[in-house]
C-alpha cells in the first residue's frame, strides 16, 4: 500500500474536523496520534458519523469495513491471528504499514485481534482515506 504524504496532510484537516464534530470535541483535542476508539472514546455509531462526514467533505467514501480491510490487508484470518486470536508476526508486520506508530516488538504475542482497532489513530484514518482517494483516482 502506498500513501501520498501530501494527500494525507491535505485530508488530515477534513478528518480532524469530522472526528471533532462527530464526537463533540474541540479540534485541538483531536491530535494526529490520538486513538479514535481508545482515547477519543468513539463507538460504532460515532465511526459511522465520522466516515459520512468525511465523505461529505472530501467526496471519498470509506466504509467501516474498509478500515478493517486496510488493517488486515487481505491476510486470511487464520494467518492474521493464531488459534487464540493473537495477532501473528505476519499480521503485525502488515499493521505496521498502516499504523506506523505501533511498537511491533512490544505487541508480539500479546495483541488480541479485538484490541487492534483501539490502536487506530486519527492520522491512520487520514492515511486510509488518502489511499481510498488514490485508488478512486486510479480506477
Amino acid at each position: 500500500m502506498t500513501t501520498s504524504t501530501t494527500t494525507t496532510v491535505a485530508l488530515f484537516g477534513i478528518v480532524r474536523e469530522a472526528v471533532a464534530d462527530a464526537l463533540g470535541l474541540d479540534e485541538d483535542e483531536v491530535t494526529p496520534d490520538a486513538t479514535i476508539v481508545g482515547e477519543l472514546g468513539a463507538e460504532s455509531i460515532d465511526l459511522l458519523d465520522i466516515l459520512f462526514r468525511i465523505e461529505r467533505k472530501s467526496g471519498v467514501k470509506v466504509q467501516a469495513s474498509d478500515l478493517a480491510d486496510a488493517i488486515q490487508g487481505g491476510i486470511p484470518d487464520e494467518e492474521f491471528g493464531d488459534e487464540n486470536e493473537i495477532v501473528t508476526a505476519v499480521g503485525l508486520a502488515h499493521m505496521k504499514t498502516v499504523m506506523p506508530q505501533i511498537d511491533v516488538e512490544a505487541l508480539t504475542g500479546k495483541l488480541h485481534a479485538e484490541q487492534v482497532m483501539s490502536l487506530f489513530t486519527v492520522e491512520n484514518l487520514a492515511g486510509v482515506v488518502a489511499d481510498k482517494a488514490a485508488d478512486s483516482a486510479a480506477s
Binding site: 460504532s44 466504509q63 467501516a64 469495513s65 478493517a68 480491510d69 488486515q72 487481505g74 486470536e85 485481534a113 479485538e114 482497532m117
Partner: peptide, 15 residues
C-alpha cells in the same frame, strides 16, 4: 452480535 463474534465490523463485513 458483532461484539459477541469478537470482530466488530471486520474485513468485507457490512452492517
Amino acid at each position: 452480535v458483532l461484539k459477541a463474534l469478537g470482530t466488530g465490523l471486520g474485513p468485507r463485513m457490512r452492517w
